[in-house]
Design a protein around this nucleic acid. Structure first.
Length: 646
RNA sequence: CGCGGGGUAGAGCAGUGGUAGCUCGUCGGGCUCAUAACCCGGAGGUCGUGUGGUUCAAGUCCCGCCCCCGCAACCA
């Protein structure tokens, strides 16, 4: 018995701290299409997805909802699994980093790395911004200040464990050099080399003790294993690595593709290989960093964000449409735009008009001219040759594209055949053959059409999962006629098989109307989205503490953008007859002319600092919400500048 | 400021130094089996910019400038 070739494909494990969105679906749908395609091509496929459930954010998020952390996670994960069910995702395993198996394996992996001498205890030196409660590295600081609030940071030390990433520098560099296929698309390689490899890899801090929700270091439970070792290793532990039964690991490792989005390419293409090298395991064959889905140029994109809710779209247009759009319309590897009308246009043109209509007209003619049965093929004419040739070579072309991960092009290969079939109908004009009584020729044409439809439909199965099955059912295609094997050669279909009647499989939408309704839907649902403001409560303060702050009203005299910065405005304010210079990071929200003449509230006794070389003597109070809106806090009536706020 | 990506027909994108292409839209024609669908044809681009450099030849290589986007150590 010869062993089937294996194919191990993974999505990243998703972080269940927020709402699930279309981007998550994108990654997962791509992997699903690949997994299905490989299965049909005869591979023994293992498709892994899951969730990364540890860390401070999760702990806080659950607390903010007033829930037990694990319970919160269970709900989130459940929601995600429901989405995958709707999206027809054919994963073989869903791993959670809170799974006991994973946790114990991670501990053993950590121990292994430690025993090898690749993990050592050291001191984590960082710059700590007390008000923001955040650690920053030196390179993150802006002019030596906290990049978030622009205030002074203090140098802090913390004991932690480090992984000797630097030790693997040379081997990683060599990996990129010798193996250009390892990381794709190519542009990402430059990014990695220039940003991280050339400057030199730093050892990586792999534990934290600022939170508890995670896996403890086996020999030092004060410390929690940080995301790198905890999350990345899921690709191993899901297969039972370091467990009682590692047969799956032996069978499927190394992974064929780790699909990731571009922002986590670094972890997968540098840190992950280094960890594997340390564990002396083979490296994955490929890491692919795909692009992002942007929200087009839709002006109201922010407020319409929830239209992109993956379940709303799926409910409204069916999963075939969404999957098809994601796979076909997003240029793989670079960023793609999403707009409602792009989605609907694509679905109307390809699914309804080109493909759906081909089926409709063919089925209708079989019923009108052939008693609803696939007819006998006899008189072949030269004009059949091209169609048959295209249908016969289709699978090879599609496979070649898929092997290069060119998914939109793979689908385009199938549509070339579909378009050719539509043209074939025009060339052969079955209706006039019918009038002329050329029965044999008519039958041949209708046979060829039925067979082409079978071939393209089987080819589409990995991408479009529902409607395609309906089409094959309509033509009563037997199981063994739904395989890739059966479409390598033209002529599998048998004459005499009944063809069912059918209503349109892929409906056509009124784009103008739908877009308008989606927008209305977005607006309508806007207020409904409960905005539970979550905040980390700061410790209680006394009046004395408050008294330390000197808050005053000031009037903006002049304001200009600080050159070569994105965020900074330089304001000159009058505060009780004294002029002050203040630099504020509000340029993204306010234009200079918007604030001139405005009364604002400032902290007047904040220690002066220089930002971008400009003196800032104070801070303007602003309110910021979770959606990235920002508003200056101003007195609600006219009041003298310099008035104290208390 | 650093690094990366990009600026090609109304929109979205391809394009190995040698007649500038594809999809959608648009305009005109054809057909009537079909989901106002399908088929054919046309129009539309001095390829961000410099009247820059290399070359017999540049969208394609080099240099300068402008603009957009992303990354910068837990956002797919």
């Amino acid at each position: 018995m010869s062993q089937k070739k294996t194919y191990y494909i993974t999505t990243p494990i998703y972080y269940p701290s927020g709402k699930w969105h279309l981007g998550t679906c994108y990654t997962t749908v791509i992997c699903d299409a690949l997994a299905r395609f490989k299965r049909m091509s005869g591979y023994d496929v293992f498709y892994l997805t899951g969730t990364d459930e540890h860390g401070l954010k999760i702990q806080e998020k659950a607390a903010a909802c007033g829930m037990d952390t694990k319970k919160y996670l269970d709900i989130q994960v459940n929601n995600l699994k429901k989405i995958w069910e709707i999206y027809d995702i054919s994963y073989n395993k869903f791993i959670r980093t809170t799974d006991e198996e994973h946790k114990s394996a991670v501990k053993r992996i950590f121990q292994k790395l430690y025993d090898k001498g690749d993990i050592y205890k050291g001191e984590y030196e960082g710059w700590y911004c007390v008000p923001c409660e955040s650690f920053w590295t030196k390179s993150q600081l802006i002019d030596g200040k906290c990049p978030d609030c622009g205030r002074e940071v203090e140098r802090t030390k913390e004991v932690a464990y480090f992984f000797k990433l630097s030790k693997y520098q040379d081997r990683i560099v060599k990996l990129f050099q010798d193996n250009p296929e390892f990381l794709e698309p190519k542009s990402r390689v430059n990014e990695m080399v220039n940003n991280f490899l050339t400057p030199g890899l730093q050892d990586l801090c792999v534990t934290r003790n600022s939170f508890k929700w995670g896996i403890e270091v086996p020999f030092d439970p004060e410390h929690i294993i940080y995301v790198w070792i905890d999350a990345l290793t899921n690709y191993l532990t899901a297969l039972g690595y370091e467990s009682n039964d590692d047969s799956l690991f032996k069978k499927y490792w190394p992974a064929d593709v780790h699909m990731t989005a571009k922002e986590i390419v670094r972890f997968h293409s540098i840190i992950w290989p280094a960890l594997l090298m340390s564990l002396e395991l083979p490296l994955p064959k490929k890491v692919f960093g795909h692009g992002w889905i942007m929200f087009g140029e839709d002006k109201m994109s922010k407020s319409k964000g929830n239209v992109i809710d993956p379940t709303i779209l799926a409910e409204r247009y069916g999963i075939d449409s969404i999957r098809y759009y994601l796979l076909r319309d997003i240029p793989f590897g670079s960023d793609g735009n999403y707009t409602n009308s792009m989605l609907l246009n694509r679905v109307n043109n390809d699914l309804a008009n080109t493909y759906g209509n081909l089926i409709s007209r063919t089925v209708a003619m079989i019923h009108q001219y052939c008693n609803g049965q696939i007819p006998v093929k006899s008189t072949e004419m030269p004009e059949d040759a091209e169609l048959i040739a295209m249908a016969s070579s289709m699978l090879d072309n599609v496979t070649a594209r898929i092997d290069k991960l060119e998914i939109p092009d793979a689908i385009a290969e199938i549509f070339k055949v579909i378009q050719r079939a539509n043209k074939y109908i025009d060339e052969t004009t079955p209706w006039s053959l019918n009038k002329l009584g050329e029965k044999e020729r008519l039958n041949t044409v209708m046979y060829n059409l039925s067979e082409v439809i079978r071939i393209v439909t089987v080819g589409l199965l990995p991408f479009i999962t529902k409607g395609t099955v309906k089409v094959l059912d309509t033509f009563n295609v037997p199981e063994n006629g739904r395989t890739f094997e059966s479409i390598k050669k033209f002529g599998f279909s048998k004459a005499g098989v009944n063809v069912e009647k059918l209503s349109p499989v892929f409906p056509r939408y009124d784009i103008v109307k739908e877009v308008a309704e989606l927008e209305k839907l977005a607006e309508g649902s806007e207020p409904k989205v409960e905005k539970k403001v979550e905040f980390i409560n700061k410790p209680e303060v006394t009046l004395d503490d408050f008294d330390k702050l000197q808050l005053r009203v000031a009037k903006v005299l002049s304001c200009e953008k600080v050159e070569k910065t994105d965020k900074l405005l330089h304001l000159t304010v009058d505060c009780g007859g004294v002029q002050r210079s203040i630099v504020s990071g509000i340029a993204k929200y306010y234009k200079p002319e918007d604030v001139i003449g405005k009364s604002v509230t400032i902290i007047a006794n904040l220690a002066p600092v220089k930002l971008r070389g400009i003196l800032s003597e104070g801070m303007i109070l602003c309110a910021a919400d979770e959606n990235g809106k920002l508003a200056i806090v101003s007195p609600d009536k006219d009041i003298d500048s310099g008035s104290e706020v208390k």
